[in-house]
Amino acid sequence: MSEEVIKAEGLTKIFNKSLVAVDHVNFSVKSGEIFGFLGPNGAGKTTTINMLTTVLKPTEGFAYVLGYDIVKQANNVRKVIGVVPQEYTADEDLTGYENVMLCADLYGIPRDIAKKRALELMELVELTQFKDKRVETYSGGMRRRLELACGLINRPKVLFLDEPTLGLDVQTRAATWSYIRKLKEEYGMTLFMTTHYLEEADILCDRIAIIDHGKIVAIGAPDELKDSLGGDIITISIKENADISELIRSVEHVKDVKNENGSYRIKVESGEVTAPLIIEALRKKGYTVIKLSLTEPTLNEVYLEYTGRAIRDIEESKEAVRMQRIAIRRARAE
């Protein structure tokens, strides 16, 4: 199961001769895995998908999908992939069923087979009840599911999902995740998805690539990436207006300190051991700690580490919030 389903080598897209949207990315996606591209808006995720799905030609570099060259054998690629675009592309004026059948026509699937499949897929994405309603009347979640049905009509071996839960509410997002998992687990499909939700990448993807300004800055399983940071993260603020970076750095076990607008992000091996030492060191110099939190590195930390800034995530992971509260309580108890 380690066959490479997608392989990109130095894949690059430059728009209008100057805007480097995707900058020499290299990665490979293994058979049967969910591979995620994580990055903020404008990072180059959609552009990458557009190249892999043969919509755009790369300016430089190569990519292969199931061994087919995306430029030279584009038509073979098109036959074996499914695409669920970022936008809602279904035709508003047609019914859900008509839309799926239109997709079937575009793949040249014989009518009788297409009809059967369309009904099966509508069932899979729980739209059977609405199949003869115009898409105009569908909610956001229903539209996403319809896109999914369209993307699956040719029984693709690889499915590309561009921000599959963008703009969906929490419940619908969770439901979408379960569809995606089902595709992988029950049908052995390989999935390439993009997202700018850390949580989604963390929970759903087997491996992720963090992409920033068109470049891949880190790649690996979410846990690997977190472990690669090593240790814990302590965040601390003091009442006084002073730079205490050097002071903290001198404390034993402290690996790195970053001052972010008066709040210090400290990388340590073990938070439980080092936090008291830091507090002690600060107290000795007369500083008052007003806030302290302890977290195991989350994908957020990984992201921050590699890109130098926090991704705008609409929800903090609940686990992270809980950990923070515990850490603060402990610190006060000291």
Partner: peptide
């Protein structure tokens, strides 16, 4: 603009 064209372009039509 609505992405329909890109979707069609990703099919073998």
């Amino acid at each position: 603009r609505l992405g329909f064209l890109d979707k069609v372009l990703s099919t073998p039509v």
